[in-house]
């Protein structure tokens, strides 16, 4: 464990909690892409099946349980409890265009052709594009609530911190995982234009609105 990975995990946890609290407190999931949240629930489910097979640490196990629990709670709030506030018309990204190619790539490019490893690879590839429906929805509505931008900032920051973690682990532990690194770079690059808007607008107290 190193400071980049720990802050990365805490940033990820913060993002998940911010979103859950935003929906729960405001009793609304306006502006939130339910499709992205379903993809994240799939990412965690396919990545953390090793909860059943191997124990690494209390921290590792508890964080995985929290991530999976919050992901499904968020999906439940969006599609069940507060479904009246779900903006399905703007959440129109065709996720099959993500899941199918990612599934194919996971079968073709992986470290080991075993069930758990292919699922893990699938979850790594899927996570790198899982935010696209959310970013697409914001580009369609042309704006985002400030709390949603904080959620997205923490979520984008987490994988950026993981990139620093992999640099650290490469030098100090000669560990590297090319699949996770390449997918992590893609994932972080997808947030770049959002990061620019967040830093130039939201941090200056303005609302995030895109030129329609």
């Amino acid at each position: 464990m190193n400071v980049f990975r720990l802050t990365g995990d805490l940033s990820h946890l913060a993002a998940i909690i911010i979103l859950l609290l935003k929906i729960w407190k405001s009793r609304s999931c306006a502006g939130i892409s339910g499709k992205s949240q379903i993809l994240f629930a799939i990412v965690f489910t396919t990545r953390y099946l090793d909860l059943l097979t191997s124990f690494i640490s209390i921290y590792n196990t508890s964080m995985k349980v929290i991530y999976i629990g919050c992901a499904y709670a968020t999906v439940y709030l969006i599609y069940m409890k507060f479904r009246a506030t779900y903006d399905g018309n703007h959440d129109s990204f065709r996720v099959e265009f993500l899941v199918v190619p990612v599934g194919g790539l996971a079968v073709l490019v992986n470290h080991d052709f075993s069930f758990l490893e292919i699922l893990w690879t699938f979850s790594i590839y899927l996570e790198s594009v899982a935010i696209l429906p959310q970013l697409f929805m914001i580009s369609k509505t042309g704006e985002a609530e400030t709390i949603t931008t904080h959620y997205l900032f923490c979520l984008g920051l987490y994988r950026a911190l993981y990139l620093l973690n992999w640099i650290w682990r490469f030098y100090f532990e000669s560990f590297f995982d090319m699949i996770a690194i390449v997918a992590g770079v893609v994932q972080t690059v997808l947030y770049c234009d959002f990061f620019y808007l967040y830093i130039t607008k939201v941090l200056k107290g303005k609302k995030l609105s895109l030129p329609a």
């Binding site: 090793d50 097979t53 590792n60 080991d112 490893e117 993981y162 995982d177």
Partner: peptide, 10 residues
């Protein structure tokens, strides 16, 4: 390359 069992990252 690390097998799944040693995937200690979240």
């Amino acid at each position: 390359m690390l097998s799944v069992a040693y995937k200690d990252e979240l």
